[in-house]
Design a protein around this nucleic acid. Sequence first.
RNA 1: GGGGAGAUACCCAAGCGGUCAACGGGAUCAGACUGUAAAUCUGACGGCUAAGCCUUCGAAGGUUCGAAUCCUUCUCUCCCCA
Length: 412
Amino acid sequence: MLKELKERGFYQQSTHPKEMAERLEKARACCYIGFDPTADSMHVGHLIPLMGLSHMQKGGHRIIALMGGGTAMIGDPSGKTEIRKILTEEQLQFNIEGMLPQLERFLDFSEDALLVNNAEWLRNLNYIDFLRDIGRHFSVNRMLSFETYKVRLNSGLSFLEFNYQLLQAYDFLELNRRYNCILQMGGDDQWANIISGTDLIRRVEGDDAFGWTYPLLTTSSGKKMGKTEKGAVWLDPKRTSPYEYYQYWVNTEDNDVERFLSLFTFMTMKEVRELGKLRGSDIREAKQRLAFETTSIVHGIENARQAQHAAESLFSGSKLTSDMDNSNVPSTVIDPERFLVGLGIFDIFLETGLCKSKGEARRLQAQGGVYINDQRIDDPEFCLEASDIKNSEVLLRVGKKRYHRLILEKKF
RNA sequence: GGGGAGAUACCCAAGCGGUCAACGGGAUCAGACUGUAAAUCUGACGGCUAAGCCUUCGAAGGUUCGAAUCCUUCUCUCCCCA
């Protein structure tokens, strides 16, 4: 099981590798990953931990998803250049509620898996007691030597943030005491936080504790994972629609396909390798499978299918047919009467959010990036007219692949 | 508490009285080439009713025909010493 996770690419480093491997083989273990509720939805960057935890659960171990309702009040400075915005408690609560249903798509909480919020024990900590019981075990000298703080040591690190590590270590200790949790996993940027937890448990409880990190992903051309022109790729369909989510994955770089299939889908490694063998334009097949699988996990198989159909019809050439299923493509409903007066293209591109300003629309048009019903528009004065309506909608496009549908409002 | 440095557009970073909507790099976007890929090349990259006009260089005042550039106060940050 450990071996498979390594093979799938979930392993960066761990404490006591041998001991840990033996311990995980020997008996059912309890492990946890923490998630900070910094937004009301998770995004693609959370997928590796989610998948990792899911694999552990499928492998028969007990899992705990820890919501950092308490720690997020501090803000983790690890690897960050700047201080995080301080969130209010109400905001954190709201965020947690947004993230819960997403967790449930990856993890099964019907048995003994747990979902806990560290605010439960952090909120009412007594400062003096905490310092005496926990703080005494931490060496400032050592903490300052951690790589994660290097940047911040120059740009500024407040005492508030400096404490984050102690709290995360304390979380682990608390979970160890309550549920006999012996393994913390997380992204490799969490390494320092994780080992301070294992050290603390070993010191205070004399118990075994392990840490295991996942690699931090960038695409093979070095871009950050999960970023598009519009920002993060979210799991919440209200922020990133299933169609957009599918598109994100279908646009995966060639060199990442095999790696992503193994990390972000539950396909067997045999299948993954098969698909990974594809070369040249055949690789699109693998990308479609990747997109389909990842979209199904997050949005369900039905939405994945729809997204796939929409993508196929938009990109296959047989566009604008009446049987086309593109209900997942971003759209705007519009009053048909506006076509009578003539609808300037800059206005409509601004209105649908395809452009941020008219200047941008103008620029885009000048550069040949504006399309209506897949016809490039070269005339800046162009106005939409009734004749542009096909099947009671108009298909707008920016560049090669950003589509937006304009749907006529039905009048009775 | 004492001394020093600094705050420029999404990020980094020039500029230090007019020629600055502000050099350069990154990110991003479009075009070409392709396979809804990468790499590469070209162009764009504050807003507008685009000739021209309007708002930007931490904040507020001031000097000047004219300020991102000079002066005053304020806010914030970093470094060194205590």
